[in-house]
Measured scan of single mutants.
Amino acid sequence: EEEEKKKEEIARLLGVSKEDVERILKKNNLDIEQLLRRVQREN
Rank of each mutant, 00 (worst) to 15 (best):
E1F: 13
E1C: 07
E1G: 12
E1T: 13
E1Q: 12
E1K: 12
E1S: 13
E2N: 11
E2M: 11
E2D: 13
E2P: 08
E2H: 09
E2K: 10
E2R: 09
E2C: 08
E2G: 11
E3H: 12
E3W: 08
E3R: 14
E3D: 14
E3T: 12
E4G: 07
E4F: 06
E4L: 08
E4P: 03
E4T: 08
E4C: 08
E4I: 08
E4M: 09
E4K: 07
E4R: 08
K5H: 11
K5G: 09
K5D: 09
K5L: 13
K5R: 14
K5P: 04
K5S: 11
K6H: 07
K6V: 11
K6A: 10
K6Y: 08
K6N: 07
K6R: 08
K6W: 10
K6C: 08
K6G: 05
K7G: 01
K7R: 07
K7W: 07
K7C: 05
K7E: 02
K7Y: 09
K7V: 09
K7F: 08
K7S: 03
K7M: 11
E8Q: 12
E8Y: 09
E8M: 13
E8V: 11
E8F: 09
E8H: 11
E8P: 00
E8S: 11
E9Y: 13
E9H: 10
E9I: 15
E9V: 12
E9R: 09
E9F: 13
E9A: 11
E9L: 15
I10W: 02
I10R: 00
I10V: 14
I10L: 10
I10M: 04
I10F: 03
I10A: 10
I10K: 00
I10Q: 00
A11F: 00
A11N: 00
A11P: 00
A11K: 02
A11H: 01
A11W: 00
A11E: 01
A11Y: 01
A11D: 00
A11L: 02
R12S: 08
R12A: 09
R12T: 07
R12H: 10
R12G: 07
R12F: 09
R12N: 10
R12V: 06
R12D: 06
L13S: 04
L13E: 03
L13A: 06
L13K: 05
L13G: 02
L13I: 15
L13C: 05
L14V: 02
L14C: 09
L14K: 01
L14M: 11
L14P: 00
L14N: 00
L14Y: 01
L14S: 01
L14I: 07
G15Q: 05
G15F: 02
G15K: 05
G15C: 06
G15V: 01
G15R: 04
V16P: 00
V16I: 14
V16H: 01
V16Y: 03
V16E: 01
V16Q: 03
V16D: 00
V16F: 03
V16M: 08
V16N: 03
V16W: 05
V16A: 04
V16T: 07
S17N: 08
S17L: 06
S17T: 14
S17Y: 04
S17R: 07
S17W: 02
S17C: 05
S17H: 06
S17I: 03
K18H: 06
K18R: 09
K18D: 03
K18W: 07
K18Q: 07
K18A: 07
K18T: 12
K18Y: 09
K18C: 09
K18S: 07
E19F: 05
E19S: 12
E19I: 10
E19A: 12
E19G: 08
E19W: 05
E19K: 10
E19P: 05
E19M: 09
E19Y: 05
E19N: 09
E19L: 10
E19R: 10
D20Y: 13
D20Q: 12
D20H: 11
D20P: 00
D20R: 07
D20A: 13
D20F: 11
D20T: 14
D20I: 13
D20W: 13
D20E: 15
D20V: 14
D20S: 08
D20G: 05
V21W: 01
V21T: 01
V21L: 06
V21F: 02
V21H: 00
V21R: 00
E22K: 03
E22N: 09
E22R: 02
E22D: 13
E22S: 05
E22L: 05
E22A: 05
E22Y: 01
E22M: 05
E22C: 06
E22I: 06
E22V: 06
E22F: 01
R23W: 08
R23K: 13
R23Q: 13
R23G: 10
R23M: 12
R23I: 12
R23S: 11
R23F: 08
R23V: 12
I24S: 02
I24K: 02
I24W: 08
I24E: 04
I24D: 02
I24L: 10
I24V: 05
I24H: 04
I24F: 08
I24P: 00
I24Q: 04
L25S: 03
L25I: 11
L25M: 12
L25V: 06
L25A: 09
L25W: 01
L25Y: 01
K26I: 13
K26V: 13
K26S: 11
K26H: 10
K26G: 06
K26R: 12
K26F: 05
K26C: 12
K26Q: 13
K26A: 13
K27P: 02
K27A: 14
K27T: 13
K27G: 10
K27I: 14
K27N: 14
K27S: 13
K27C: 10
K27F: 11
K27M: 14
N28Q: 12
N28P: 03
N28V: 10
N28G: 11
N28H: 15
N28Y: 15
N28D: 14
N28R: 09
N28K: 10
N28I: 10
N28E: 15
N28M: 15
N29T: 05
N29D: 10
N29H: 11
N29C: 07
N29R: 09
N29Y: 06
N29S: 09
N29P: 04
N29W: 05
L30Y: 08
L30I: 13
L30A: 04
L30F: 08
L30N: 05
L30V: 08
L30M: 13
L30G: 05
L30C: 05
L30T: 06
D31F: 04
D31Q: 07
D31S: 15
D31L: 05
D31W: 02
D31K: 06
D31V: 04
D31H: 06
I32K: 01
I32Y: 06
I32L: 14
I32F: 04
I32Q: 01
I32S: 06
I32M: 06
I32H: 01
I32D: 01
I32V: 14
I32W: 04
E33Q: 03
E33G: 03
E33I: 02
E33C: 06
E33S: 04
E33P: 01
E33F: 03
E33Y: 03
E33W: 04
E33L: 04
Q34K: 06
Q34E: 15
Q34N: 09
Q34R: 06
Q34M: 07
Q34A: 11
L35P: 00
L35K: 00
L35V: 03
L35F: 05
L35S: 01
L35G: 01
L35T: 02
L35Y: 02
L35E: 03
L35D: 01
L35M: 06
L36N: 03
L36T: 02
L36R: 05
L36C: 04
L36M: 06
L36P: 01
L36D: 02
L36S: 02
L36W: 06
L36Q: 04
L36E: 05
L36G: 03
R37M: 06
R37W: 01
R37G: 13
R37N: 13
R37C: 10
R37L: 08
R38W: 15
R38C: 09
R38T: 15
R38N: 14
R38D: 15
R38P: 03
R38F: 11
R38L: 15
R38S: 14
R38H: 15
V39D: 02
V39T: 06
V39C: 08
V39W: 01
V39S: 07
V39G: 02
V39F: 03
V39P: 01
V39A: 14
V39M: 08
V39Y: 02
V39L: 15
V39H: 04
Q40V: 11
Q40A: 10
Q40D: 05
Q40M: 10
Q40H: 08
Q40P: 02
Q40L: 10
R41Y: 07
R41D: 14
R41F: 09
R41Q: 15
R41I: 12
R41S: 15
R41P: 06
R41L: 14
R41K: 14
R41W: 07
R41M: 15
E42M: 06
E42C: 10
E42H: 12
E42Y: 04
E42G: 10
E42L: 06
E42Q: 13
E42S: 10
E42P: 08
N43D: 10
N43Q: 14
N43M: 15
N43E: 12
N43S: 14
N43G: 12
N43P: 09
N43K: 14
N43V: 15
N43F: 08
